[in-house]
Design a protein around this nucleic acid. Structure first.
Lengths: 187, 187
DNA sequence: CCAATAACTAAACGATTGTTTAGTTATTTA
DNA sequence: TAAATAACTAAACAATCGTTTAGTTATTGG
């Protein structure tokens, strides 16, 4: 043992995540990360390997943060009602005082092309799968639905969510609310 | 007058557009444009000013190309039916043999942050407005709808289209078809 | 046919990217 | 207290970015 680390990995990752969330993967440079995380490049590379490593850790951090709106969905007795509330909750969750950040995961999926880092791509589809499972589980709590309907609707709401997350960076809140109402109109 | 140009602007822009469409704005470098357009950097700057200028011209080119699926929408007697067909048409329109390219405009909106070039941002929202007008005009052809419903639905389908264009780069065709069917289920 | 001029080639520009490395400081253990 | 070692600072790395510029080639009009 020798000199002690002057920062906690979890704390600096939270700051890095905020940066990636606001600016996207490519736009966020090591220089920006250095400044925002408050530690030297050497320390970043010692702790996380490289820029990719920092980002992967940020995705984990984002997932944890997202739990604050996933939990109510899990606990909703009326699955469909809980799902609709999740859509509304997400808009508030994604809204920074200043700018509309969308979803870190969706933003990354939109930004990357197919020859991107495989580890990140794998994490993206893993995340998508998890959200889909949350949606399907919620729908199962509405006992009147048969299995096929549940799978179809889970797919439908998953793409709707992906779309809304993207659109939330561009369109105003009222239009997004109107969008949600139409999505769930006859569901 | 002196030496003649050895290329036609319209032709090289078409190639540039394909590149931007496949790879996005930032990922597409001047080096790649040089190679794909088949002309020297000097010629690119002489004809279009800078990278931004090339891209703006590509957006015009994209709009023209998109007309091939906008025209059927304009001519559809049943507006709602035409709109649904437009969603289906877009999936084919956006699908390159190899990769799912999505929509050049939507891709750019997803990629850019708020401090991007104002000219491009203006062109993006202009495009969005035009598409919304096409949607509203189609819906007006269904005489049973009142004005407020038309505006609400135009907003709804606009965001749905934006979302689907983004999602089309990630999700398989069958899921997208399922998405369209649900969007138009009770409309 | 020659001077004028526009379009070409190719090299270089400064700035910034992600990453590495040499050298210094602080803490631990023997 | 002194040797060992991990964490720090800061400078430099090669590669690439968008853009510019000097020099050459081809076509025009007088």
């Amino acid at each position: 043992m020798a000199r002690k680390k002057e920062y906690k990995e979890e704390e600096v990752i939270e700051k890095a995540m905020a940066l990636f969330w606001n600016n996207g993967y490519e736009t966020t440079s090591m220089q920006m990360l250095e400044k925002e995380m408050g530690i030297n490049k050497f320390s970043i590379y010692a702790s996380f390997g490289n820029k990719n490593g920092v980002f992967l850790e940020c995705m984990k951090c984002y997932k944890k943060k997202l739990n604050q709106i996933i939990l109510p969905l899990k606990n909703a007795t009326d699955g469909m009602k809980g799902l609709k509330q999740y859509f509304y909750d997400f808009i508030e969750f994604s809204r920074d005082p200043q700018i509309a950040r969308g979803c870190l995961i969706t933003n990354t999926a939109n930004e990357l092309n197919e020859d991107a880092d495989p580890t990140i791509k794998a994490e993206l589809s893993k995340f998508t799968g998890e959200i889909r499972t949350h949606f399907a589980n919620a729908l199962k709590r509405n006992t009147t639905k048969d299995a096929i309907t549940i799978e179809n609707q889970a797919d439908y709401f998953l793409i709707s969510m992906f779309g809304m997350a993207s659109a939330s960076r561009v369109f105003p809140k009222e239009q997004l609310h109107n969008y949600i109402e139409n999505i769930f109109k006859n569901a």
